[in-house]
Write a protein that binds this DNA or RNA. Structure first.
Lengths: 184, 184
DNA sequence: CGCCATTATGCAACTTGTTGCATAATGGCG
DNA sequence: CGCCATTATGCAACAAGTTGCATAATGGCG
């Protein structure tokens, strides 16, 4: 139920073609709702059929040619309705935690190396988020919209900090199996 | 790729029937890899066909009757191989963050109430995890397996703390729209 | 026995997300 | 023009997860 609403949000921020949406997802909305271009095109088709978006008149309906979409009033209404919904947080689903649990049963040579690898990846992601924060949310930008968008980004930052903290503590708690731990 | 391995892990900890697995998932593994009984039965069938598990000889193959499974050597080997895999962390996918982003565009009356509701739910979940920690991981239990399982639970605890922290800060940062904020 | 709640297994249809590939326009270069 | 890289749209098959329901055994109760 979320992808169409992610697309509506992106299109309201700026009318775009399928590929443009894909690129914007990679840089922004995709940080908390990722998607491929195939999924986006499929969803754009459904949204158009449902009368929630339409192709801009300028865009010819030919295959290899850009086709830009904009949100119709029905689409905005649908998005508003969705925002107002209550929805319980879902249980997490994390393969790394699952693998650690499995490791408790079948053993885990090299698990510490995998944890270190993840730690590095999360540090990189955190650095990226912090760079975006510095660029997009200087103190003087403080409208209601900016504050909400900033909070969303803050969610990403806090989440990376959670992983970094947990992984660091986990590495303290399990024995090293790889080559010299001091040289990592 | 994860559910079959979650099932193998659970079956290695203790041979079980489909419904027993479902219940154990609800209480334990399901905290980070949830599943329904339908999915579990389907997966048990596939694992049996693949020669990774087998029904215990005592269990008659009749429809309304309990059928217990145990892991075969091939299953244990498959699980070990999976544990040794590298797998990058996936992007988060969170509808609440998405809704907040949408709210920045179409407005969000009542969003603060939803955040407060989530905050309460996460506090409850945290309390549940802490109770489990106290019950299952007293200081004297400190085998390698216990430490790994405890780390997994710690992941859940830390994650709830992340949400509680973020939601609290978010509520500080957006205006209250509901009835008297001081009486919440 | 007949009725019913509970325990238990399982199928089918659907939705969502992923992977691989096909097709079409456009513009640069020789 | 022919060739090719790039941009762009899109289909099809598959995998994973969800929802709704069907079926079967068992044990308690009248």
């Amino acid at each position: 139920m979320s992808l169409p609403h992610a697309i509506l949000t992106a299109l309201l921020e700026k009318p775009s073609s399928g590929l443009e949406l894909t690129r914007r997802f990679d840089r922004s909305i995709g940080y908390f709702w990722s998607s491929t271009h195939q999924q986006i095109y499929r969803e754009l088709g459904k949204l158009e059929q449902a009368g929630q978006i339409r192709a801009l008149p300028s865009a010819q309906p030919a295959r290899g040619q850009k086709k830009e979409y904009e949100v119709l009033p029905a689409g905005r209404a649908a998005l508003s309705a969705w925002v107002a919904l209550r929805e319980d947080p879902k249980q997490i689903r994390d393969p790394l935690l699952l693998r650690m649990r499995a490791a408790a049963v079948v053993g885990a040579p090299g698990l510490d190396a995998e944890l270190r690898r993840h730690l590095e990846l999360h540090r990189k992601q955190l650095a990226e988020y912090l760079a975006i924060e510095e660029r997009d949310f200087p103190p003087e930008r403080n409208s209601e919209e900016d504050r909400l968008r900033h909070l969303v980004l803050r969610g990403g930052i806090d989440l990376e900090n959670f992983w970094i903290g947990w992984l660091t503590r986990a590495l303290d708690g399990i024995p090293a199996t790889g080559s010299s731990p001091s040289a990592g």
